[in-house]
Amino acid sequence: MATSSAQHRKLTLRLVIIVIGMFGFGFALVPLYDVFCDITGINGKTQNSAAVWQSGQIDNSRSITVEFITRTNSGMSWEFTAQTQRISVHPGEVNTVSFYVRNPARNNIIAQAIPSVSPGQAALYLNKTECFCFNQQALQAGQEAWMPMSFYVDPDLPEDITYFTLQYTLYDVTDRAADLTDNENPFLRQPVSGSR
C-alpha cells in the first residue's frame, strides 16, 4: 500500500499539471484564435497595424469595388460618415479615402473604430498603410475632423472576389481610455489631401 500511495501521488500530480495546462490553453485560445483568423479570414478581421506598401505590380486588368459602411454603436453620439461610399481600385495600387467625424456632445469623447470586412476572406488581402482605426481618436466637444485611410488590395486576391465591403463601427471608449482626453486629434479640421 505504501508504494501505491507514491504511485497515486505521482499520477495525480501529472494529471493536475494537465489540468493547469488546459486552463492555460483556454486562455491561449485567445491569441491562437487571432492567428486562426489571420490565416482563414474568419470574421473579416483586418490587421491592426500598418502594412508597408512595396511598389510592386499594379494589376490594371482587374478592378475591385470596395464599399465603405460607417456605423456608430449605441451610446456614441458622433456623426460619422464616409466621404467615399464606393471606390473601384486596381489590385496593388494605393488609394486614400477619408471619413468625416464630428462630436456634437458637450463633453470630450474618445472613439475607437472597429473594422470588419465581408466576405471575410477579402480581409486577408486588404492592406492598410494608414488608418484612423489603428489608434483611438479624441475629439473635444463640438470638434470635427476628416480622418484618412490608405490601403491597397493584394494582387493575390482570389479571382472570384470582385467586390468587398469594409465596415467601421465607432465605439465610445472614453471610460477605458481616460488618459487620452487631452490628446489633440491629429486630423482635426484638415481635409486630407487626396480625399475624393
Binding site: 456608430t72 454603436n73 449605441s74 451610446g75 456614441m76 453620439s77 456632445a105 458637450r106 465605439y171 465610445d172
Partner: peptide, 18 residues
Amino acid sequence: QAHIEIVLNGKAGTAMQA
C-alpha cells in the same frame, strides 16, 4: 440635457439604444 442625450444616443453596454 442628459435625459435627452441618453434617449438620442443610448448608453453603451446596456439595452438602452440610440
